[in-house]
Amino acid sequence: MSESAYAQAAESANHIHDLLPEKLRNPHVGIVCGSGLGGLAGMLDQELLFELGYKGIPHFPHSTVVGHAGKFVFGLLGEKKTPVVVMVGRVHYFEGHSIQKVTFPMRVMKLLGIHTVIVTNAAGGLNNEFSVGDIMVLNDHINFPGLAGQNPLRGPNEEEFGTRFPNLSEAYDLSLRKQIHLSYKKLQLTSEKRKLHEGVYVFVSGPSFETRAECRFLRALGADVVGMSTVPEIVVARHCGIRVLAMSLVTNRAVLEPGPRGDSPIVEGIDEEGLRDILGAGAANHEEVLETGAAAAKDLQGLVRQFIDDIAP
């Protein structure tokens, strides 16, 4: 019989703890960096840092996505020197990992003493009121793979972490959402270029970006943004009692309009290259995600730093 998830997470957490400098052994907040957002680790006090690659941690999954470094960075953040751990690069279900393996790092964070996580991601905007570069605070989600059976809590319940049937109607902590808006106003980030919204994130398995019809379908269900991460981590975080703040950076606008028909007058006389341009207008690509993440990094870093100071004791 293989080890329980709890036993494996405990082995990983103990391994990490034994390697950490004493001043970094009790992190309070965990930060998960999405695509193009790994620069968040640069917010940490550079005088006391500890980095550990995922490959050096027992049982830990490895990230293979471009833009995801695959390491933990421990350090002190903000004026109040809050001890935190930044997860630079997450692992995804579409990489071939099981949904349980994807969420394993969250359980390790729990055993490291984390009581609050800030989870970030890059997402496609479904809501027409959202612009590229805007930030959305998650206040709910739709878990498509989870509804179809790929729930990270499927199987024997790990009683050491939480109850068999966790309630997710309040998954996104209202107190933390209230504070992020206050922190945002304090920094006076409000502008036409980068607004802060709240809304619903829909998780899909990927790795292909969504079709036009799928985007219209997801929007009709009430989703404001769509992405390939975050929700499984939230499910496991809430199962083990970790408070959650999650934010999406809108890196592209999803294409909701139907494509032109093959017998449409607008395609008459257009060559192959022109037809590709018509059909590809507005389509998402991973390079765009990384570029938008880099452009928004400064504002998002400042917002996270301010928020950490504001919730610190």
Rank of each mutant, 00 (worst) to 15 (best):
A148K: 14
L245W: 10
H68K: 04
P260T: 13
V91D: 00
S35D: 08
F144P: 01
G302S: 03
S183L: 13
D45V: 13
H68N: 09
S248Y: 07
E22L: 09
M1A: 08
E95W: 14
N167M: 06
R154Y: 10
A283M: 11
E291Q: 11
T103M: 04
P145D: 01
P207C: 12
G42P: 02
D263R: 04
L245R: 09
P156H: 14
C215I: 10
S191C: 07
F165G: 04
V84N: 04
E129S: 15
L176F: 05
H197C: 02
V29W: 05
V236G: 02
I311L: 00
R276W: 11
I270D: 02
G162P: 06
R243L: 07
G96Y: 10
P232R: 08
V85P: 00
T190P: 00
L245V: 08
T230N: 04
L37I: 06
V236K: 05
N285A: 01
H28T: 03
V132T: 12
V91W: 00
G155R: 10
K186Q: 15
H92M: 01
V200R: 09
H115V: 12
L19T: 08
V32R: 11
P156Q: 13
L303E: 11
L189R: 03
I135M: 15
F161L: 01
R177F: 03
G56S: 15
A13T: 08
V85N: 03
D140V: 06
I142Q: 06
P27K: 07
D134H: 14
I114L: 08
N139S: 03
H62A: 05
R90S: 00
S248V: 14
M136I: 15
E11F: 06
L174E: 04
E158F: 06
N14M: 05
L221D: 00
E214I: 03
E95M: 10
N127D: 15
V250N: 08
G75A: 11
Q301S: 09
A213H: 02
V65K: 05
A297Y: 01
R238C: 01
G70P: 09
K71Y: 06
R243F: 07
P61K: 04
D173N: 14
A5Q: 10
L153W: 05
V267L: 14
A148Q: 14
A312E: 09
E268W: 06
T230V: 12
E287A: 09
G124K: 11
E287K: 13
F209N: 02
M106T: 15
G155T: 12
G282T: 09
L147D: 07
F217L: 11
S12F: 02
H17P: 00
L196D: 00
D299V: 02
V137S: 11
A41F: 08
G227Y: 04
L249F: 02
A10R: 14
L196N: 00
G293C: 00
H141N: 11
S2T: 15
H62P: 00
V102G: 02
R194I: 10
R243G: 05
S63E: 04
Q301E: 03
S131A: 11
R194D: 03
G34P: 03
R25T: 06
G96I: 14
E51L: 05
G241H: 00
